[in-house]
Amino acid sequence: MARIVVISTGGTIASRWQGSGFAADARGQEVMATAAVPEDVTVEVVDLFSVNSPRLTTAHQLTLLRTVHDVLADPGVDGVVVTHGTDTLEESAFLVDLHHDDPRPVVFTGAQLPLDAEDGDGPRNLYDALLTAARTRGLGVLVAFDGKVHSARGTVKTQTVAADAFADPSGPRIGTIGFGKISVLRHPRRPAALPLPEASSPPPRVDMVMHHADGDAVLLNAAVDAGAQGLVLVATGAGNATPEIVDAVAAARARGVLVALTTRV
């Protein structure tokens, strides 16, 4: 029997209609009750929090990271499933993967339709995630969604409402799920894991600034003035920006702000 721990964090998969909108108010056991459990799998549920993922904070994500490590400290656990809202699932999965050095999988999943939808996708996604957590090893942190398995690194939400919500624009998926089986198509390269952040130190403020046509340094300077200790400049093309942005980056660096350059492409 594979012993899988499901960490419930909220999201659409745990959401119900509240009269004027949906709210993630269902506990983990209620979410689990909607899904079949694969043969030879036992499930334990950890109710970590119930949050709509657009409202997730860095504090929530660090709590999730440490909870995953605490769960995997038990050698009797065979894998972890995290139920999560899709809006920020990619961020949480990537964070956990940065610090993951265990061959046992951590599988993120969620839903595009709420808990009480008659044709909801949550039950199937949860079943697939349980199966993936029970049957795979050495693949790192994964995202199981709509019959597909993706690596946490590189995977982003590519569809706002469609069931096939996630993809890795930079490479093929890890595998597919169907008929109670997982077909692993590739094994991702696994860099060395980072140590866990110290629990006592507050996370630094890091802001993102998007460069675009007519873009100036107003937002970048505002982030620095607001106390950002780090900036991610999302530049154009191969990392291009205007001379005004370049000067603002130099000024930020002179003030001790770390600036990471990436691209919209």
Results as ranks from 00 to 15, higher is better:
V46E: 13
L142I: 14
D116P: 10
D70L: 03
N52K: 09
A129R: 08
T109W: 07
T58I: 14
F94M: 13
P114F: 08
V82A: 01
V71S: 04
D87E: 00
R104T: 08
A93I: 01
N52R: 13
N125A: 09
V37C: 14
R135P: 06
T34L: 15
F108C: 10
E90M: 13
D70F: 00
V71G: 06
G140C: 14
T34G: 05
R66C: 07
R66P: 10
V46K: 03
D74L: 00
H100D: 07
T42C: 00
P38S: 12
R137H: 11
T109E: 09
R135H: 12
T34N: 01
P54Y: 09
G85P: 05
D97I: 03
A33Q: 05
E118S: 13
V107G: 13
V80G: 02
F94V: 03
T136Q: 13
Q61W: 06
L62I: 01
Q61D: 05
L142Y: 12
H100L: 13
V77R: 01
V71D: 00
L65H: 04
R104S: 09
V43F: 03
V41N: 04
T58Q: 14
R66K: 12
A59L: 12
V96W: 07
G120R: 08
L115C: 10
V141I: 10
E91G: 03
T109H: 09
V71N: 06
V41D: 03
A73N: 10
E39V: 14
L62F: 02
E91R: 02
G85V: 05
A134C: 12
A129Q: 06
R55V: 06
R135V: 13
P38E: 09
V41G: 03
R55A: 15
V45P: 04
D128L: 07
G140S: 14
Y127E: 11
V45G: 04
D47Y: 07
R66S: 11
G76K: 02
